[in-house]
Write a protein that binds this DNA or RNA. Structure first.
Length: 783
DNA sequence: GTAGGGTTAG
């Protein structure tokens, strides 16, 4: 389950967290929950004491999980000891300090080899290195590498070559040599050293390992010793060559313009006998090398590159959409639109996969050249060859229509996207499209005013793009549109909700200097934010400041403070603010009363809760379901079933409909009274009944509830839910439940399959069903 | 005429 279910999202998270009791904390600490912490949660958690306590103990309990979160954590948490990197004592080389050698043979050998080279204990070394059965070749490369310097490793190589029994010698020598090369490549005069080592390997008939060859190809390539690189590549048996070697080698050949050589490698890789022939590896290697060359690495000669490209296509090796787009973009950048267009056509003609992306690149280029005629032709062509436009294609179209003052046509395209969306088809208008349209409409003669900007800024805030909102704020001033207090409020509130209370306060200060004074709404946003971070001193202070600065609090301002205090359990403060509220001539509404009653109940102050209830009724505010639920929860939790039942009857008599929460409270009570922990069967009964009465929403939240309480759902639970969801046709929720079922390794039975098969095939979602079933095959294997 | 703040119960 997601942490969201427990904590709520964003600002709500902290509010809920404040209520978390000690035993519940431990539940939250399970790595599972920590894994789901979003940046948002982390920010909010790190703002309060409870949050920091949670995070700190989480970091002690679930090291690996938090390790992966490291870059996102609050700075204070970086001090946590286990987050420190491996000790950085200066070892023999980076390889070793990263990967301490705990292999006894390697350690002992290195111990023996520490003696000066002329006094190595040859007998003991031989006993260690050449027993029967012998150590692995990898031991030899590790030992040589552990020596830290190429000259030392070379002496060791000589030792191995002259002492190793005849049969094993070549392999051991090769692996030792590989490490000598590696060490030499890190030393200052590597060019000369590697060349000499390579010559030596040929003289002494040392066969190159793939790793040695890869290193040599890479470094010779870097030093411009192309012929040596070619020969180091060819020294390795073709069946032993791996993807990495090919990739480096091909890249090197292209960089040095060796197209002939590259073609030879291509033939080799595509040979039916090669293990790469049927894979996408040759395509990946060659296209990315071509692309790098096209991007100017080693100078670019489009003819030869395009020629090679066409050759690949002829052979049935195709680039993926992203690579093709990049290639097209590069050709366009060099003014070769015609060539780019031909290339796309050739891929299509040869049966390669082509999506909208490469077309979009060409469309953008044509647009830059104002070549609308060819843009049109291209779009017609796309339709002809059945390539559906994606959101980007439509964005380009709308943008150009707007720019050519054809805003009405642009709006028509927009309409079409929206209605297609309703028909359940692919794409939905995105920010870019809205931006283009807004821009078009603005330039169409109606200038944006402060309200237009406010709407946009608010929009950005509401989707958490505070930085964009701030940019727009700066932009409006530049365009000569003066922000007003509403603009300030939108931004202050946006920053607060994003957890940047400090920024909000700072921003407000700046605005005061500019002559924009805060009003009740500004203060209310800030008060709420401070309540959310448990800073009630500041919240109260702001409340006072507001009155003193001549802007008197309204009822919402009072409600905000009261709700914050209630959630924090500060009921005395909450009560006195409520008294002030009444003194100021306002009255409490039902939500506010519920806040207070709930707060008193959580603090076990039943008398005060009843006082509130009495006051509420006498002032003509009718208790609602939530009011009753607050009380029911209290009696449920304290096991007072008689009163709970009485209350339940009363609420029904008053015409109120009990909810999942009400029943939950009663069940809580029954279980407590009889010492029965709630179990799967009880939940199943309830879930099934709720679904049968079309209260599927309630059933789903009961499911959340059981997960929260650590009661495992079983197949019956899911079956009941799927039945309910099918009745409502809530596909998305059903997919969610299918995932959950998978996660819980809860096996579907014939009932599950019957419901899902019938439903999902009716709505054309057989793919999801297939995935669902596959999930079980996989988990069955791993289990 | 169009924009901004508090929503409670398990």
């Amino acid at each position: 389950m997601e942490l969201n279910c427990v904590l709520g999202r964003g600002p709500l998270a902290l509010k809920n967290l404040k209520r978390v009791s000690q035993p519940e904390e431990s539940k939250l600490l399970r790595p599972h929950f920590v894994k789901h912490l979003s940046l948002h949660h982390l920010l909010f958690l790190s703002l309060s004491d409870t949050g920091m306590r949670l995070l700190r103990s989480a970091s002690e309990q679930s090291k690996p999980v938090l390790h992966s979160l490291k870059p996102r954590l609050h700075p204070a948490l970086h001090l946590s000891p286990f987050l420190r990197p491996f000790s950085a004592d200066p070892g023999p080389g980076p390889e070793l300090s990263r990967q301490p050698n705990d292999d006894p043979i390697v350690a002992q050998a290195l111990g023996l080899l520490q003696a000066p080279e002329n006094s190595w204990n040859a007998a003991e070394l031989s006993r260690l290195l050449f027993p029967s059965p012998p150590p692995t070749p990898a031991h030899f490369s590790k030992i040589a590498l552990g020596l830290g310097a190429s000259d030392k490793a070379l002496k060791f190589l000589e030792f191995v070559q002259s002492n190793s029994p005849r049969d094993d010698a070549p392999v051991f020598v090769s692996h030792t040599f590989q490490s000598v090369v590696k060490l030499a490549s890190r030393e200052p005069s590597w060019e000369k050293a590697l060349l000499e080592l390579y010559k030596m390997s040929r003289q002494r008939d040392i066969r190159l390992t793939v790793n040695a060859s890869t290193l040599l190809v890479s470094f010779f390539g870097r030093a411009g010793m192309v012929d040596e690189a070619v020969s180091a590549f060819e020294d390795v048996d073709r069946n032993a060559r791996d993807g990495e070697l090919y990739e480096l080698y091909v890249g090197m050949l292209f960089r040095h313009g060796r197209f002939e050589g590259a073609l030879k490698v291509l033939d080799e890789m595509l040979d039916p006998g090669s293990r790469f022939a049927a894979s996408n590896i040759p395509g990946k290697i060659f296209f990315s090398a071509l692309l790098r060359r096209l991007q100017g690495e080693g100078g670019s000669d489009a003819d030869e590159i395009v020629g090679f490209f066409l050759k690949l296509i002829e052979l049935g090796v195709f680039p993926d959409s992203v690579t093709l787009s990049k290639i097209i973009k590069n050709l366009c950048r060099n003014g070769e639109i015609g060539r780019a267009w031909d290339l796309v056509l050739r891929v299509i003609q040869s049966g390669g996969p082509v999506e909208a992306a490469p077309f979009n690149v060409i469309l953008v280029e044509l647009g830059k050249r104002l070549d609308f005629k060819r843009m049109n032709e291209l779009m017609i062509k796309m339709k002809e060859i059945n390539i559906p436009p994606d959101i980007v294609t439509l964005g380009i179209l709308i943008n150009h229509l707007c720019k050519s003052r054809r805003v009405d046509d642009a709006l028509e395209v927009f309409e079409r996207i929206c209605t297609k969306q309703e028909e359940g088809l692919s794409c939905k208008p995105d920010t870019v499209i809205y931006n283009c349209l807004i821009d078009g409409l603005c330039k169409d003669g109606c200038k944006p005013n402060v309200i237009t900007y406010n709407c946009l800024i608010d929009g950005y805030c509401k989707c958490c793009e505070i930085d964009k909102a701030r940019q727009l704020f700066d932009q409006m001033s530049e365009e000569g549109v003066q922000p007003n207090v509403v603009t300030v409020n939108i931004l202050v509130d946006g920053m607060c909700k994003f957890g940047r209370v400090g920024h909000a306060v700072e921003f407000l200060k700046e605005m005061k200097v500019r002559g924009l004074s805060p009003n009740v709404r500004t203060y209310t946003s800030l008060i709420k934010a401070f309540c959310n971070v448990n800073n009630f001193e500041k919240a109260m202070e702001l409340f006072g400041e507001m009155s003193r600065s001549g802007c008197s609090p309204d009822s919402v301002a009072y409600y905000t403070l009261i709700s914050g205090l209630c959630n924090a359990g500060r009921m005395d403060d909450a009560s006195s603010v409520a008294t002030e509220l009444k003194a100021a001539g306002f009255s409490l509404d039902v939500v506010c009363y519920n806040n207070l009653i709930g707060g008193f109940c959580r603090k076990n102050k039943l008398e005060e809760a009843y006082e509130m209830l009495k006051e509420m009724e006498s002032s003509g505010v009718k208790p609602d379901t939530v009011t009753y639920n607050c009380l029911l929860s209290y009696f449920g939790k304290t096991g007072n079933l008689t009163t709970a039942n009485k209350l339940m009857r009363q609420m029904i008599e008053k015409g109120l409909v009990p909810t999942v929460v009400s029943y939950g409270a009663l069940i809580h009570g029954y279980c407590l009274k009889n010492n029965i922990p709630p179990n799967t069967v009880i939940y199943n009964i309830l879930i099934e009944c709720l679904c049968r009465n079309d209260k599927v929403d309630g059933a789903c939240s009961l499911m959340d509830d059981m997960m929260e309480k650590g009661v495992r759902p079983n197949t019956t639970t899911f079956n009941a839910l799927f039945k309910g969801l099918r009745q409502m046709n809530w596909l998305k929720k059903a997919f969610e439940m299918m995932d959950r079922m998978n996660e819980h390794a809860c096996k579907p039975d014939y009932v599950t399959m019957e419901i899902l098969t019938e439903w999902l095939s009716a709505v054309g979602e057989v793919g999801k069903l297939k995935n669902f079933v596959q999930g079980y095959e996989v988990s069955a294997c791993t289990a």
